[in-house]
Write a protein that binds this DNA or RNA. Structure first.
Lengths: 353, 353
DNA sequence: CTCACGAGGTACATCGATTAACCAATCGTT
DNA sequence: AACGATTGGTTAATCGATGTACCTCGTGAG
């Protein structure tokens, strides 16, 4: 390491590299970007000099000149109660970062409390030219964000049922309802007839898709849902919904939850009410969080490969930003992972329906 | 909204704002930054024009000129198995972002798999001038990162036992062992004498601090730990450690875990072994994750206010970056939250010790 | 011998915002 | 009335990297 690199806080500039290599700054730039016409020999000399000085092109300078920052935004809407989106969201980040890091992109993370703040944030990010694109989560049925981002000219992808023809392409596993369908079939196969669904907020797209899958699957067996309750994804909401279900006259023998965290709360609530899972009531989650497989009973859940989806979203977005990335191929489907929280319906053959 | 703002992708520059307000670009800049001498009237005119055009200063341009990007890095070391740091880490982000957002700062999130990658990342972030500072997590006993960051001239704070005189100031609750001490006293009061500790990786600073607190508290009562097992914070590690403890001849009547996720795994493992918590074995966690209070039994744990610590770290770092922020006051201590996973020691008066 | 041409670089304008240095009024003073 | 101080701005240089237009050789063809 050279004396220069050791001068704390003092970053070398392209000029010093050029001087060290005995060339012009233009040559240095061209050597780094594989543009222009530079002989391989000088290129090496330049690269060596840069290495010696510990130089990398200044991100702000390059961003100013190129009008591209090489960073993307991920905006997470986080209500007061953090449960719902939480673990989901950190897996998502893992998937995204895995694609960004090797390409030298950065991920700018923002938390917002509601739609107005989220809009204002995009306006600011775009106006300041802080990011090249954004990943949107929690697709809503009537989502105003794609329109906004299109107006702002900010590339974006939305996580949800795939649709790359939309204003803002949507990335996600195909056949999003499949997991819930499988879950219902699994429960039906176990003899369950009174099955309830604890859903997320009704305005979210996946809530509707999964709810429809749930109802369709039951209808296919000539049944109707015991109940469908909407929550805000909070622990309290899950507990409340579960209590309501278990207090019912002819309580359900199985409950499907829209995510694992709620399912865990549901199991706790059932146990607290003196019931045993799955003997008295079966429980299915959604997300396949690592924790679920270590509980007692181990949680039956739906795996939706959040990490892969995140990676695919990142690549799609990078492509939109002009990066040379092959389009992601998301081949999987949401799949049921059967563990211990589901079992035969209690009370033998069902009396109803 | 003006016609200008509607031209998608075309961002206005300071020149257009200046023209619209009938002043020079310098005036616009000064109006925005409260510098120079601009009459209140013109200032208003300029601000109005900017609002009309939807202009905000270009972040890259400002960053280039000021040598400050107004963004901070958070580097999370994430091993293959994500459990340990996970929920902890999203609470941390919440705390940090809460301080950054109102000041227009951004949080650049990076995940790394190990120390070499982490070092390389800091080198790159510094060389490219991408961030003004960094938040370091998981203080190690012999941590090489502070030295590196000091050499790089990159301001940083390290989460851990407070020490603002170190090369890189450490931010955290005082008296970090207090929570574990309280936990042990709580268990002793319940008649437990055979108490084990399932710790994190030995190289982490907080592992040592908490372990010491654990041993000291027992020693104060004339006891020795039943065992202290180190894990890598993974679910599997927690399960393995728990199985080993429960298989022991004279198995412990209480187990203290270094985080809630491991404690949950521990409860599951105990239940799977046919034991009832807390009747047969008491369990204490650490972190006070929201989920813990909805399990059955509700988890007794230690609250360490991760979110507040994150906020304090952010403010400390902002101050280091020259931002005008009052120093954070972290008054709290880690505190035991007694719930249902701890109870009287089984078997009446203990036979040992 | 001369000229066209390509290989290999260089000079300079540029991206958008900031700021030090400077200047033109206006005001208060004696 | 003349002068210094103050107010309210402006001009122009600058941050670091990039890319276009240009320049300078050396070479091969005619």
């Amino acid at each position: 390491m050279s004396a220069y690199a050791e001068r704390a806080g003092r970053r070398p500039t392209i000029k010093e590299v050029a001087a060290a290599a005995g060339v012009s700054t233009a040559a240095v730039s061209q050597a780094f970007n594989h543009k222009g016409r530079i002989s391989e020999a000088t290129r090496q000399r330049i690269l060596d000099a840069a290495l010696e000085l510990g130089w990398s092109p200044s991100a702000p300078a390059a961003a100013l000149r190129n009008a591209r920052t090489r960073s993307l935004a991920l905006v997470v809407r986080r209500p007061t109660d953090v449960l719902g989106s939480d673990p989901h969201f950190s897996e998502l980040i893992t998937g995204i970062e895995g694609e960004l890091a090797p390409r030298g992109y950065g991920l700018l993370l923002h938390l917002v409390t509601g739609p107005p703040e989220e809009h204002a944030l995009y306006e600011r990010l775009a106006a300041e030219g802080r990011v090249d694109g954004a990943v949107l989560t929690d697709a809503r049925d009537d989502d105003t964000r794609p329109g906004l981002l299109a107006r702002l000219g900010l590339p974006a992808v939305l996580l949800g049922s795939p649709d790359d023809t939309a204003v803002v392409p949507r990335v996600g596993l195909r056949d999003q309802g499949a997991g819930v369908t499988e879950a219902v079939e699994h429960l039906l196969g176990l003899g369950h007839r009174r099955i309830a669904y604890v859903a997320g907020p009704p305005e979210l797209q996946h809530t509707r898709v999964r709810r429809a899958a749930f109802e369709d699957a039951l209808r296919g067996a000539g049944l109707r849902p015991f109940a469908v309750l909407h929550t805000d994804f909070s622990e309290r909401g899950a507990v409340g919904a579960t209590e309501a279900l278990l207090d019912a006259d002819d309580r359900p023998t199985a409950i499907v939850y829209a995510n694992d965290s709620m399912a865990v709360c549901g199991i706790g609530t059932a146990q607290r009410a003196g019931l045993t899972v799955p003997r008295d009531v079966s429980v299915v989650g959604y997300d396949n969080l690592p924790l679920g497989s270590w509980l007692h009973p181990r949680l039956t859940t739906v795996d939706q490969q959040v990490q892969q989806v995140g990676a695919a979203a990142a690549r799609m977005l990078l492509a939109l930003c002009g990066e040379d990335v092959e389009e992601p191929a998301l081949t999987g489907r949401p799949r049921l992972v059967v563990r211990e929280s589901t079992g035969p319906a209690p009370g033998g053959p069902d009396r109803s329906g």
